[in-house]
Design a protein around this nucleic acid. Structure first.
Lengths: 334, 334
DNA sequence: ATTGGCACTCAGGGATAGTGAGTGCCAAGG
DNA sequence: CCTTGGCACTCACTATCCCTGAGTGCCAAT
C-alpha cells in the first residue's frame, strides 16, 4: 500500500519540515534529497500520503506538513535513534559525575537534558516504593513533636513532622527508633508498610499512642504522596515561537504534577523509550519523549523531554536514552 | 512643582493603564475619574508630567503610559497597600495550615502566592545561616561512604554523601556523630562553621582523615551552596500576552538562581515590602514585589512576585505582605 | 507508472486611502 | 495666572486592492 518511495517521501517531508518549520513542496523535496524522479511523481505520492492521513496541507496550494499520524509512522518505522557523539557522551558523564546528593543528581540531570535537547526536560525523583530503607531517624523538636527522617538506599531523604498525643521521654523515642531500624533496615519500602502495621505489639503499652502517631505518619510517607515529585527545567526554550498560543497549556501542564506524571507514562524497563505525539499527549501540538531509568536493571523512575510535535525525534530520543543510562549508572554506584 | 491635581492625574493614568492595557487619553481620564476640569486642562498637566519623565506617549497622538519613574512615584507616594479581604485571609490561613514538612510549606506558599496575584511567585527556602542545628546524623552507606544529614530548627533537612579516605568502623562513626552533636546542637549555623574548624583535636589521631572528610563536606553544606534554594510557580501566568517577546528573558531569569536571588533583594526586616520596577530589576518590562518572612521577628528568607511592569501594585503588595506574614507565623509555630 | 505541460488557487507582501483618537497650541474668559 | 473651547494636525490602525510566486491537481503523452 505504501511502497518504499512513498515512505522515503514521508521521511523526507518530516525531516525537512522539522528543520525549516515550513510546509514542504514537491519541488524542493526532489532537490534537497537525491530522489531520482520528477516533482510530478512526488506529487502523486503526496496525494496518496495525504489521503491516508499522514500529511496535510495548511491551505490549498501550500506544501505539506506531517500529521500526528505521519510523525507516528516516522518514529516507529522510518527513523533510528541517533546515538550521541563521543564528545557528548563525555560531557554528560563529567557533568553528572560532579553530583553528590540525590537532589544534586536530579537537578543536574534535568538541566543537562534541557540543554542537550533545547527543550523542556522533566525528571521524576526515584520512586520510594521500589527502593529500600537505609535508616530511620527520630529527632525531638519539642516534647510533643518529633521529626521523622527516612533515608533510602537511592539516597533520597524524606522528612515529616509528627505531633505526639503525649509528651515523650528521650528514652522512649530512642527505643522507638531502635525498633523501627531493627525491623525495617534493608527492607523494600513496599514491604515496609506492611511491617509497620504489625509493629504495635513490640511497643510497651503506655507508649503506644505516641508510637501510633509516628507509625501513621511513616505510613503516609511510604505511600502515595511523595511518589510524584517532579522537577523540570528549560522552560526558557518555550519562548521560541514554536508553541505560539498553545504555550499556556504547556506551562499549565508543567505545574500540574498529575498531568505531568501521566505524560511520562507508566514505568517500563530501563532506557526503553516511549514517544507520545500530539493528541496522544493530551496537549495540542506537543510531544513527549520519555524513558525509565534505574539502578541495576531495576527501573526506579522516569525522565523525559517535552517539546513541539515538530521536533527532532531521532536526536531527542538519543539524548533521552543516553541521559537515562548515565543517571542509572550514577545511582547504581552510590 | 507637582500639585495635587497633577499627582491625581498620574495616579489615574497608572490605574487606567494597568486595568485596560491601553494608552490613556485626556478625554477618557476626565470621564472615568470624577475630575472637575476640562480635558484641555488635563492635557496641560500631562504635558508637564511628560516633561518630568513620569509618563510618555508610545507615539505622537496616542494616549500616555507611565514610565518606570511614574510607577515608582505611584508606588512610593500615590498608592496604599491593599489589605486582603477577610475571606482571602481565611483562605490563606487554611491553605497553609495543612502543610507538615517544610517542603510542603514552601510548595504551598509559592502556589498560593501565584494564584493570589496571578503572576509568577518565587519563594526562597529559609536560610541556613540564620537558623540553628537541631541534630546531625551520620548513616553508613558503604564502609567508605557515609550520608551526612543536617537538621535545622526551621525543619530544613540537608543531606550530602561523604567519601571517606579509610574504611570506618561503626563505632568510630558513632563517636564522630556524638562529638558533632555535642558540640553543635543548638548553635547557630553561622557559628557552627567556626566550631567545626576547631574540632579535629577531639578526634583520635587514626580517625582524623575520615573525620576531616566529614568536616569538610559539613562546612560546605553550612556555607553558600544551599543558601540559594529557590522555588517558583505560576509560570503559566506568563502566557498572558503581557510580556510579548520579553518572555524569554523572564523564563531565563527564573532558571538562573543567581539572577533570581538578586531580584528578591537583600534581606530586610520581616514583611517590609520591596518593590523593584522595570529597569531596576534588570529585566525590561518586569517588576518584582518582594518581602522578607521569618519566625519571631527574625527574617529567615525572602519571597516575592514577578510580573509585568504594568501590574496592580497595591493588590500585589497586599498579597505578598499577607502571605509573608502567615508563612512566618506557621514557621514560628513549629 | 512516470513525466511535462498547464490552468488554477491562495497566502503573503506592499501600496493606498480613510478613520478617529489623541495631541499641541492659541486666544478668550474667569 | 489658571482654565477652557476651538482647531488644525499627526499617525497608528484597518480595510481594500492587487500582484506575485510557490505549490497544487489534472491530463495527455511516453
Amino acid at each position: 500500500m505504501l511502497d518504499e518511495r512513498k515512505l522515503a517521501v514521508l521521511r523526507a517531508i518530516v525531516e525537512d519540515y522539522v528543520s525549516t518549520t515550513e510546509p514542504v513542496g514537491s519541488k524542493s523535496l526532489v532537490d534537497r534529497h537525491g530522489l531520482d524522479v520528477s516533482p510530478a511523481t512526488i506529487r502523486n505520492d503526496m496525494a496518496v500520503l495525504e489521503e491516508q492521513g499522514f500529511i496535510t496541507q495548511p491551505h490549498t496550494s501550500a506544501g505539506r506538513i506531517p500529521t500526528d499520524k505521519g510523525y507516528r509512522l516516522f518514529v516507529d518505522r522510518l527513523s533510528a535513534v541517533k546515538p550521541m557523539s563521543a564528545a557528548e557522551r563525555r560531557a554528560i558523564e563529567t557533568f553528572l559525575a560532579g553530583a553528590y546528593s540525590l537532589d544534586e543528581v536530579v537537578a543536574r540531570t534535568v538541566r543537562l537534558l534541557a540543554q542537550l535537547t533545547r527543550q523542556v526536560a522533566v525528571v521524576q525523583y526515584p520512586s520510594l516504593s521500589r527502593s529500600s530503607v537505609r535508616h530511620i531517624e527520630l529527632v525531638s523538636l519539642t516534647p510533643q513533636r518529633v521529626l521523622l527522617v527516612l533515608i533510602t538506599d537511592t539516597g533520597r531523604v524524606e522528612q515529616a513532622a509528627v505531633d505526639l498525643p503525649d509528651t515523650a521521654e528521650p528514652e522512649s523515642i530512642a527505643h522507638l527508633r531502635a525498633v523501627l531500624n531493627a525491623c525495617l533496615d534493608g527492607h523494600k519500602l513496599a514491604d515496609a508498610a506492611a511491617t509497620v502495621s504489625g509493629l504495635a505489639d513490640r511497643i510497651p503499652v503506655p507508649e503506644r499512642p505516641n508510637a501510633g502517631a509516628v507509625f501513621s505518619v511513616l505510613l503516609e510517607s511510604l505511600a502515595e504522596r511523595h511518589e510524584e515529585r517532579l522537577v523540570f527545567a528549560g522552560t526558557a526554550n518555550l519562548a521560541a515561537p514554536d508553541f505560539g498560543k498553545g504555550l499556556r497549556d504547556v506551562l499549565e501542564a508543567l505545574e500540574e504534577q498529575v498531568v505531568l506524571m501521566r505524560l511520562l507514562g507508566e514505568a517500563a524497563s530501563p532506557s526503553a523509550l516511549t514517544v507520545r505525539i500530539g493528541a496522544e499527549t493530551g496537549i495540542q501540538g506537543t510531544s513527549v519523549v520519555s524513558a525509565a531509568y534505574g539502578a541495576g536493571g531495576q527501573a526506579v523512575a522516569k525522565l523525559g523531554v517535552l517539546g513541539p510535535t515538530r521536533m527532532d525525534y531521532p536526536g531527542t530520543m538519543g539524548a533521552v536514552r543516553a541521559v537515562a543510562r548515565y543517571v542509572g549508572q550514577i545511582l547504581g554506584e552510590s
